[in-house]
């Protein structure tokens, strides 16, 4: 009896929290717009596009992904800048250009025979079966249940095997002592790091920094939810994965490459 009552209270407080977060505007953007417009029953699945309850473990019901529309003429450097700002990157003073960290970079691809070229941002592709996680001797390189791949720096010994294994060159090694890091992106000498899809922002119900800066050319959402904006986009557009031949089933997809 009493346990049931307490259960109810927990449920109640969770709902309250959801409401609070919702009202205080931490859940923003198109996801909310989609949520409001439909019936209450569907509303809940819509809200699942942003994480609201951060007191429970993430599950594999959700798989976060990003689709990037390269046909839109956007200055991708804005995404790079937003990323650097968000994570406090670019504060190395001694490393040379090849030693500095980049989570996201702008890559220009040109077809050698036809001359057709496109520009696209490349970051960690958040593979379903990431080679970096397979090769890590300590388990520092990890994939969270909701599909986000990143490095647990508490366990990273700096062997750099994951950097050898990544087909996307998405990882960087910190080559020098760093100070004044961002509160939400601890990073330091001797560890490997990479794009973490702004896991700190996702957990707050926000979208990754690059998506916010992309002027609508990047869509972030839950790949498992068939009614999400990203899934609908993927269902009707001919999108591609980089190095699809490796069958890594990436969480980041591209349109127009």
């Amino acid at each position: 009896m009493s346990s049931k009552a307490s259960n109810q209270t927990t449920e109640q407080s969770k709902t309250d929290l959801t409401k609070r977060k919702f009202l205080s505007g931490t859940v923003t953007g198109s996801m909310v717009a989609a949520g409001v417009s439909v019936a209450p029953g569907i509303f809940l699945t819509q809200v699942a596009q942003a994480r609201t309850n951060t007191s429970a473990a993430v599950t594999s019901d959700v798989r976060w992904g990003i689709v990037i529309d390269t046909t839109k003429k956007v200055d991708w450097n804005k995404c790079v800048d937003a990323c650097n700002r968000e994570h406090g990157l670019g504060n190395e003073t001694k490393s040379n250009q090849e030693q500095k960290t980049e989570y996201i970079r702008v890559v220009k691809v040109k077809n050698k025979t036809t001359g057709y070229s496109s520009t696209l941002p490349v970051m960690c592709q958040h593979c379903e079966t990431p080679p970096c996680v397979d090769v890590c001797p300590t388990g520092a390189s990890m994939k969270r249940e909701d599909g986000i791949v990143y490095v647990d720096r508490h366990l990273c010994i700096g062997c750099r095997y994951c950097m050898m294994a990544c087909p996307y060159k998405a990882r960087s090694f910190v080559h020098e002592t760093l100070t004044d890091q961002k509160e939400n992106t601890p990073r330091g000498k001797g560890c490997v790091e990479s794009c973490n899809m702004c896991v700190n922002r996702i957990d707050q119900g926000l979208k990754p920094a690059c998506v916010d800066a992309s002027e609508g050319a990047m869509i972030f959402g839950d790949l498992n939810d068939k009614s999400s904006e990203i899934s609908k986009f993927l269902a009707i557009q001919n999108t591609k994965q980089i190095r699809a031949d490796l069958r890594l089933n990436t969480g980041v997809r591209y349109q127009g490459i």
Partner: peptide, 24 residues
Amino acid sequence: DRNSTMREGIRTLSDGGHLKGSLK
């Protein structure tokens, strides 16, 4: 708490407060 945050994404207590072992 670092493990539950890093591995499972648990960032708050159920009342919304910070975890006991939050370095931040």
